[in-house]
């Protein structure tokens, strides 16, 4: 069991990160920290892809490097996914600015109270 986990430490870290991110996303009352949690969660998934591309003793996927190469496709996919993640964060932060203007707070519970009083 320990051996299996040790040989797959990259995957282990990736999923730990995802777990921590999910916990922040759900458990934290502050909206900005929720967005940070979302980012950490996504980063975990990105690292999972990158770790899956690893080949023992291979060089980076550059033509000038000697063969064998690590698989370049997951890198390309994750580049796209990172761009998507950045846009999502930007939109989320934009919304949070508006929420702060409207309710004067970023804490979930306080916003709920303001909404109830309206």
């Amino acid at each position: 069991m320990i051996d299996m986990l040790a040989s797959r430490s990259y995957f282990l870290v990736a999923f730990l990160l995802s777990g921590i991110g999910t916990y922040m996303l759900i458990g934290n009352a502050n909206l900005i920290k929720k967005v940070i949690g979302m980012n950490v969660f996504q980063t975990g998934i990105f690292l999972f892809f990158i770790a899956s591309a690893f080949v023992d003793g291979a060089s980076p996927p550059l033509v000038s490097a000697p063969e064998p190469y690590v698989s370049p496709l997951p890198h390309v996919l994750i580049l796209t996914a990172i761009v998507v993640g950045v846009s999502l964060t930007a939109v989320a932060l934009g919304l949070i600015v508006r929420i702060n203007d409207a309710y004067g707070t970023l804490r979930e519970g306080e916003i709920r109270e303001v909404v109830r009083d309206e």
Binding site: M38, L88, V115
Partner: peptide
């Protein structure tokens, strides 16, 4: 107003988790 921004943020967070799970599924299939 704040209501639509709050609804949109909730939609964004839940929707992103959904899409990320979809991405993870693609990873497994790949």
């Amino acid at each position: 107003g704040g209501r639509s921004a709050l609804a949109a943020l909730k939609y964004l967070i839940v929707g992103t988790v959904g899409a990320s799970l979809f991405l993870l599924g693609i990873g497994y299939a790949y």
